[in-house]
Design a protein around this nucleic acid. Structure first.
Length: 138
DNA sequence: GCCAACGTTGGC
DNA sequence: GCCAACGTTGGC
């Protein structure tokens, strides 16, 4: 199952993610149970979209889960853990939220219908549609 | 900057 | 276990 990760580029941008290379980066700071549970169900090697919220409001790249969920190093609270992500590739053409709202087949995307969930599942069909819109082959 | 939607906290 | 108060997210 593919995923989608939101980040405000002011805080952590796609370029910063790319700069971490294959070392990847801990996806810390998630303090929402649903988002955390999604991370807990991820397996190493699964793919996800990298979405810029607030600024840009577009899907800009593809990341891969590089470590399964483990305690979040930024808190002592044992409730919170997170995966690590590494950048795979940028989309040739970013896919905006606006496009997602109107593209056939994306009507049910969590991104469109639950704007507050920061780590969310994407269906295989949605994945393919967005890759096509983004100018890459899935 | 506003505010709707939503999630969390904590008193009862 | 309910729910009011509060805080946060994120589109606009």
């Amino acid at each position: 199952m593919p995923w989608l990760f939101k980040s405000e580029p002011d805080t952590w941008s796609w370029d910063q993610q790319v700069s971490r290379g294959s070392a990847g980066e801990e996806w810390h700071g998630i303090r929402n149970y649903q988002a955390r549970n999604n991370m807990r169900s991820m397996k190493v090697g699964e793919l996800g979209f990298f979405y810029h919220s607030n600024i840009g409001k577009e899907i800009v790249g593809i990341v891969e889960v590089s470590r399964e969920s483990a305690p979040d190093s930024t808190t002592d609270d044992p409730r919170w853990d997170c995966v690590c992500l590494r950048a795979v590739r940028a989309l040739v053409k970013p896919v905006s939220l606006e496009v997602c709202k109107t593209a056939p087949g994306l009507e049910k995307m969590v991104l469109v219908n639950n704007s507050r969930l920061s780590v969310q599942p994407v269906t295989d069909d949605e994945w393919r549609i967005i890759c096509t819109l983004g100018g890459i082959s899935s």
